[in-house]
Simulated assay, not measured.
Amino acid sequence: MGFAAATQLGAGWSGNFQAGAVGVSTTCQPASQPLAVTMGEPDFVGTGDVPWRLSEVSFSQISPACIGLKYEVAYRVGQVWQALPSPSESVIDSSQLSVDLSGADISRADEFSLTFFS
């Protein structure tokens, strides 16, 4: 099983959303080929202490060696990891992956992870 921590990001409202790239070490993604991570356009909901919501997180620059592997995406709040809902047979089919965040409350997410497995 390969594990790729996608990025450290503050998705709680602090005035900005962060994206970037991070080196990973997995059986299919070379450490010299970092994943790029971006967030979808934030939606203003204007309620509570978190006025913005994210619709998706996207991973790109996925190595061709990872294509065909299954994947799972999770997010961490504090010390607790929560898997995002995904299709039953979630398989990487290109060098880019967008994950719908509408079914998850990621307002306090500290980090996302992308896991590849066979």
Rank of each mutant, 00 (worst) to 15 (best):
M1F: 07
G2Q: 02
F3V: 12
F3P: 01
A6F: 00
G10C: 10
G10A: 13
G10W: 05
A11G: 08
W13F: 15
W13V: 12
W13E: 12
S14T: 10
S14Y: 15
F17L: 06
F17H: 07
A19T: 13
A19V: 09
G20V: 02
A21M: 08
G23E: 09
V24G: 03
S25M: 09
S25N: 12
T26F: 00
T27C: 03
T27G: 09
T27E: 08
C28Q: 02
Q29E: 02
Q29L: 01
S32H: 04
S32C: 09
Q33T: 07
P34D: 02
P34V: 05
L35V: 02
V37H: 01
G40K: 10
G40T: 08
E41C: 10
D43N: 15
G46M: 08
G46S: 11
G46Q: 10
T47W: 13
G48D: 14
D49P: 11
V50L: 06
P51K: 14
R53L: 08
L54Y: 15
L54A: 04
L54K: 07
V57P: 00
V57C: 02
S58Q: 14
F59N: 00
S60A: 14
Q61E: 13
S63C: 00
P64I: 08
P64A: 14
P64G: 11
P64H: 13
A65N: 02
A65M: 06
C66G: 01
C66E: 00
C66A: 02
C66S: 00
G68V: 05
L69N: 05
L69C: 06
L69H: 12
K70P: 00
K70V: 01
Y71V: 03
Y71H: 08
Y71C: 02
E72W: 11
V73P: 01
V73Y: 01
Y75Q: 07
R76T: 03
V77R: 15
G78M: 06
G78C: 12
Q79N: 11
V80H: 15
W81M: 11
W81H: 14
W81E: 14
W81S: 12
Q82Y: 14
L84V: 05
P85K: 13
P85G: 10
S86E: 10
P87M: 07
P87F: 07
E89D: 14
E89V: 12
E89T: 15
E89W: 07
I92K: 00
I92A: 00
D93S: 15
S95M: 04
Q96N: 14
L97F: 12
S98W: 01
S98P: 05
V99F: 02
V99K: 00
D100F: 11
D100W: 05
L101I: 04
S102I: 05
S102N: 13
G103W: 13
G103C: 08
D105H: 07
I106Y: 04
I106G: 03
I106T: 15
S107G: 06
S107F: 00
S107I: 00
R108H: 04
R108N: 06
R108K: 15
A109N: 03
D110A: 08
E111T: 12
E111Q: 15
F112C: 02
T115P: 05
T115F: 09
T115C: 06
F116L: 04
F116M: 04
F117W: 09
S118A: 13
S118M: 10
S118V: 11
